[in-house]
């Protein structure tokens, strides 16, 4: 693999930026409020298959968001505390969660890219692979990842 990594997907930019980290594929839809602990970044809903895993620093693939209107607040809080994901990849543009990242930028907190990937992250990119989201919505697998 080149140092630039390998292109694996291209999405629609919901919020532009760059971010890299291990890919975290959430196995089920999630509500950030009630589903992610705003003080740690870990999945706190015991019914969720990823219960206990941390989103902090990850490039999180979330096929669908569900539930609470407060999910935007939880994301904002994670970004304020430096505990947020490094990037969000959403199966579908979401009017709640994404707004947490929009407001983080308004308040001058470190922001993150949010990209819509309706076709998903290709199956060959395993959970834990080091990936990078580019400002144009490109997703690349980086060398040295898991």
């Amino acid at each position: 693999m080149s140092p630039e990594g390998r292109a694996v997907a291209n999405g629609r930019v919901l919020l532009a930026g760059t971010g890299s980290g291990p890919l975290l594929r959430l196995a089920a839809p999630i509500s950030f409020w009630g589903g992610v602990d705003p003080s740690t970044g870990s999945v706190c809903d015991p019914r969720h298959p990823d219960h206990g895993r941390s989103l902090s620093g990850s490039v999180a693939w979330i096929e669908s968001t569900i539930g609470s209107s407060s999910s935007s607040s939880v994301l904002l809080e994670l970004l304020r505390l430096g505990l947020g994901p490094a990037a969000l990849l959403l199966g579908r543009a979401d009017p709640i969660l994404s707004l947490g990242a929009v407001v983080a930028v308004e308040l001058g907190y470190p922001g993150i890219p949010v990209v819509e990937l309706p076709a998903g992250v290709p199956a060959e990119v395993a959970d834990g692979t080091l990936v990078e989201v580019r400002a144009d919505g490109a997703l690349r697998a980086l060398p040295g990842g898991g």
Binding site: G17, T18, G19, S20, A87, A101, P110, G111, I112
Partner: peptide, 8 residues
């Protein structure tokens, strides 16, 4: 790590 997003 991440950086440089903007809404504007």
């Amino acid at each position: 790590m991440s950086g440089g997003p903007g809404t504007g």
